[in-house]
């Protein structure tokens, strides 16, 4: 009777091949994250120093109005960007899926903005939304002289100006993913629905969308990652202005780490960003992956 190799050495070669990846993940992601969290409790200015000052950095952070505005902005941008990207992406995909003519052309046009970087997108929309050159100027030129549309110069609505640019850039990709999902739905299901006389919108809502669950999850993960890291779009479009009305957390982190030369404050802010992501992610991951094992 030969003894079976222990579990650890089963598939040894593939496990060996994974070692570099695992090491990088542990050192770079986990290691650096822990390092950042540790130094967020210190008085580090432009150089990291282990000179602890307790929760001072966090206390200052949550008293700073710029940080509070940033959080509010990312919440508005996040919720709307998630809802609108999914809705618009799905609607566009459903429309393109109606076996229309020139489908390729439309698909290309809608996907094109995604090929542009956020910086370019931001600059383009900065011009479009500029009251002296863009939409407002054109509409006034048509004779509507009292027309006002200057979201980037109005602190109350500036975040929506950024949202427009973000949606313009990102919706095409979501549409493509949704379209791939729709194409993956078996033709027989549509036939069966038609035979049963179920209206098209009901088929979409109750049959097709539930079947597209994995596609939706992919889309949600992509959109969520885009929301957390939004930075370049704001820098290009408004650089946080007018005043501090369009600031976002990532920009706060950068500005205090490098412009303000206060690493401790920047680390505290980035730790809070990570904490927010974790708070959203853990319950979701628990529902998504924990449920399956039990079932």
């Amino acid at each position: 009777m030969t003894q079976r190799p222990t579990r650890l050495f089963r598939n040894a070669s593939s496990k060996l091949a994974l070692v570099p990846m695992i090491t990088i993940t542990l050192v770079v992601f986990v290691g650096c994250t822990l390092w950042t969290v540790l130094y967020s409790f210190t008085k580090s200015k432009s150089l990291p120093r282990l000179d602890f000052n307790g929760l001072d950095n966090y206390a200052r952070l949550w008293k700073t109005s710029r940080w509070l505005v940033s959080i509010e902005n990312i919440a508005i941008y996040g919720v709307l960007s998630m809802v609108l990207s999914l809705t618009l992406g799905f609607l566009l995909a459903a429309l393109l899926d109606q076996k229309i003519r020139f489908e390729d052309t439309f698909r290309t046009i809608l996907l094109y903005p995604f090929a542009l970087s956020f910086i370019v997108t931001g600059l383009v929309w900065q011009w479009i939304l500029n009251p002296d050159f863009g939409v407002q100027h054109v509409v006034r030129g048509l004779g509507f002289t009292s027309f006002e549309f200057d979201p980037l110069y109005n602190p109350e609505i500036v975040i929506y100006g950024i949202l427009i640019a973000g949606l313009w850039q990102g919706t095409g990709l979501i549409m493509c993913i949704m379209l791939a999902g729709l194409r993956g739905i078996d033709e027989d299901i549509w036939k069966a629905a038609r035979v049963d006389g179920i209206p098209m919108w009901k088929t979409y809502l109750y049959v097709v969308i539930p079947m597209m669950r994995p596609v939706f999850i992919t889309a949600i993960v992509l959109i969520a990652a885009g929301i957390v890291k939004v930075y370049d779009l704001v820098v290009a479009q408004t650089s946080g202005g007018p005043g501090i009305a369009s600031e976002v957390p990532a920009k706060y982190v950068y500005d205090y780490m490098f412009r303000g030369q206060n690493l401790g404050q920047g680390f505290a802010a980035s730790t809070m960003m990570m904490l927010c992501v974790v708070i959203v992610l853990i319950p979701w991951a628990y529902l998504e992956f924990g449920g399956k094992k039990r079932g």
Binding site: K45, S65, G241, G243, I244, D255, G260, N262
Partner: peptide, 30 residues
């Protein structure tokens, strides 16, 4: 002033400058 303090003042005054509802007493205390 250190870069950190200047950044804080930059933030405060640009907020004051573009927020008409921020009062003199508010900004002075901050």
């Amino acid at each position: 002033l250190s870069a950190d303090t200047r950044t804080q003042l930059d933030d405060l005054l640009t907020e004051f400058w573009s927020t008409p509802s921020m009062t003199v007493a508010d900004v002075q205390e901050k």
